[in-house]
Design a protein around this nucleic acid. Sequence first.
DNA 1: GATATTTCTCATATTGACATGATGAAAGGG
DNA 2: CCCTTTCATCATGTCAATATGAGAAATATC
Lengths: 141, 141
Amino acid sequence: MLSQTAEYALRAALYLARSSDGRPATAETIAGALAAPPNYMAKTLHALAKAGIVEGMRGPHGGFRLVPSPSELSVARIVETFDEPVRRGPCLLGGRECDAANPCGAHFRWLGLRRAMHAPLASTTLADLLADVAMELPEAG
Amino acid sequence: MLSQTAEYALRAALYLARSSDGRPATAETIAGALAAPPNYMAKTLHALAKAGIVEGMRGPHGGFRLVPSPSELSVARIVETFDEPVRRGPCLLGGRECDAANPCGAHFRWLGLRRAMHAPLASTTLADLLADVAMELPEAG
DNA sequence: GATATTTCTCATATTGACATGATGAAAGGG
DNA sequence: CCCTTTCATCATGTCAATATGAGAAATATC
């Protein structure tokens, strides 16, 4: 359903949303809490930073901070940083290219299906996912 | 959104649904019409056969035939032959495993989102996708 | 039963996502 | 100014999905 990288990114964003106590969290801390590969998590967080979803701060007491408010940050925005939503290519019914101006016979039905799948991603925010969660992190040992 | 293999399979099934004139279509014919790699298409069709979605018949005038009626064949059934829908693994909020009996804080919201994404696949049939299409194939000149 | 056709199956390349490791650049504390 | 901490970047390795190729098994036609 989601690529591994996109899921790491979503988990990291959820972590940051829960730990919004002012202090940024380091890539290593996040990776440790999420049982994710530290180096890969760092790379993923950097990609989120380039997309403006998180902000990276270097030096002691540095780390990553969530930029948008969780209630303003959709799951779709995180996922689309890594998984391309539109698949350019031949249309469902044959070999040729297919778009709105030159649609194949299944173009609009297929588009509708894809949109229906995408809609929940766009309408769900981090705050929605965390609605059942108390907004603190357990202290690590 | 879909793996390449699953998309080949969906296209092949749509091709068979349109060309349901009694005669089976060979893997080569289908691959040619869909601009797909012939050998890979054959392999994909075989996987569909093992899933009971198509039937393969060997020998002259053999080929592949769609088994269920297009109106009874959901896109989900085709896609799930190749893309595993359930992702076992650590939960969204942390490193531990997470299920209905021992849910993480985002378990049910996340489950709801995944179900919302899956529902259109399950409720859309091949007949739905082909609703705008005349049920004949153009003759290959 | 010989032959052509076509699926079925195995073996092997290629490619991109996933992951790891090392180094460079910025920022705070002494 | 030096040292530590941390992000930023580059180089490389691993592996599953994708793709290719060749041969074996089955079936219709003659």
